[in-house]
C-alpha cells in the first residue's frame, strides 16, 4: 500500500531524510518514531506529495507520487502536524469544502461528511465556527477531513498531539479500528502509543531507520523491557547534537 524507496531529502547542506526505505501493508499500522527533527514530518510530506523528494520515490497503492501526484493524492488521507484549518468556517462547512475538493458531490458528499463527523465525534460542534473550538476538537476536525473520501492510506502526523488523555485514548482506538482495512502510517513521540495502537514500529534518527519491528520485538531488543530505553540508546539527543 505504501512503498517508500530510497527516499532522500536535502535542505541545503542538511540531509533531513537519508535514503529511507520501508513499506506499510494493508491492515498494518506503522508507528513512526523518532526525536524532534529526525525527519518524520519531512518523510510524510514527501509521501503525501506536498514536497518533492531530492531522490527516491514513494508509491501509494502502486501509484508513484512523483509521476502521478494527482492520482496518488486521491488515495491518501493526511493529517498535517499542526492540524491546519480555515478558521473562518464552520466544522461542517469546512468538511463539505474538503469533500468538494476531493470530487464528491450531492448525497455522496453529505454522506461522507456525516460519516466523518460521526467517526470523529464532532456532532456537538458540527455547526460551530472552527474559531471557537478547543484544540481537541480542532484536531479531530482535521482528522475528519482526512477520512472523508474513505482513503486506502492514512498518513497522520502526530494525531494525538495536544489531546487530553480521554481524547488520546479515543484517537488510538480509532486508529486501531481503521487500521484493519487501511494502511496507516502515523508519527508520534509518545512511546506507549506504539504498544497501544501499532502493529509495527520504526524508529528514525537523523533521517535514517535505526530500528524496525513489532512492538514486542522492539521491547525485546531493548534488553530492559522498556521502549524508552531502546529509544534513548538508539537516537541522538539534541543536547549531544549541539555539542
Amino acid at each position: 500500500m505504501i512503498e517508500v524507496e530510497n527516499l532522500t531529502k536535502q535542505f541545503g547542506s542538511k540531509r533531513a531524510v537519508d535514503d529511507l526505505t520501508f513499506t506499510v501493508k494493508k491492515g498494518e499500522v506503522l508507528g513512526f518514531l523518532g526525536p524532534n527533527g529526525a525527519g518524520k514530518s519531512t518523510t510524510m510530506r514527501m509521501i503525501t506529495g506536498f514536497i518533492p523528494p531530492t531522490s527516491g520515490d514513494a508509491r501509494v497503492c502502486g501509484i508513484s507520487v512523483i509521476d502521478e501526484p494527482k492520482k496518488a493524492k486521491t488515495k491518501i488521507g493526511y493529517l498535517p502536524e499542526s492540524a491546519p484549518l480555515y478558521h473562518d468556517m464552520t466544522v461542517i462547512g469546512f468538511l463539505k469544502f474538503c469533500a468538494s475538493v476531493r470530487g464528491l458531490s450531492g448525497t455522496a458528499k453529505n454522506d461522507a461528511v456525516e460519516r466523518a463527523i460521526d467517526t470523529c465525534f464532532l456532532n456537538s460542534v458540527a455547526r460551530q465556527s472552527i474559531d471557537t473550538l478547543s484544540k481537541g476538537y480542532r484536531h479531530r476536525t482535521c482528522l475528519a477531513q482526512a477520512l472523508l473520501h474513505d482513503p486506502e492510506v492514512l498518513i497522520l502526523d502526530e494525531p494525538t498531539d495536544g489531546l487530553d488523555p480521554n481524547q488520546k485514548h479515543e484517537v488510538r482506538q480509532l486508529i486501531k479500528r481503521l487500521g484493519r482495512e487501511k494502511a496507516i502510517l502515523f508519527s508520534t513521540h509518545i512511546l506507549e502509543e506504539v504498544e497501544a495502537a501499532c502493529t509495527r514500529a520504526v524508529i528514525v534518527d537523523c533521517g535514517k531507520i535505526v530500528a524496525d519491528g513489532t512492538p514486542a520485538e522492539l521491547i525485546e531488543q531493548s534488553g530492559t523491557g522498556s521502549l524508552t530505553d531502546l529509544f534513548r540508546s538508539l537516537t541522538t539527543r539534541d543536547t549531544e547534537a549541539a555539542a
Binding site: K70, T74, S82
Partner: peptide, 13 residues
C-alpha cells in the same frame, strides 16, 4: 496557518 499543506495534498492543481 499551514492550510497550504492541506491544499498541497488535495488532488488539485
Amino acid at each position: 496557518t499551514g492550510t497550504i499543506e492541506l491544499l498541497g495534498t488535495f488532488p488539485l492543481s
